[in-house]
Amino acid sequence: MKTAATKTKVLTANRLTDGIAVWLGANGEWTTSLKEAFLARHDDAVAAIESAGQQALDDNRVVDVNVIEVEETEAGPRPFRLRERIRSDGPTIDYAPAFTAGVSHAA
């Protein structure tokens, strides 16, 4: 018996204190890197991250909690939606020359 096949999902949110985009990691901590996100590959795992998200919301650690779909690639998980790719990689434009010097962007 296996649970129904689903697209791989990850849990994302924004941290309450500074609003920075975060993803739920395998160790249960929130991480600022999508690469370190826990990949939920079946329904039980999705239910588990949803429940973790609700708990974090109730605990006022994060806001705007969402489960999103990703494609597993060699470079790491890649969200299907452009919106989520931009949340993960940052603005697609060279937006703050002084701040971003030396930081590369994924388009």
Partner: peptide, 28 residues
């Protein structure tokens, strides 16, 4: 009150908006 958890995001949102604070994709 928000950071201490006394009020929820639902209750805080109209208060922060009234003072120009949004939550965007990457940050506030």
């Amino acid at each position: 009150r928000r950071l201490s958890g006394e009020i929820s995001e639902d209750a805080f949102k109209p208060l922060r908006l009234m003072n120009g604070v949004y939550l965007q994709l990457h940050a506030y």
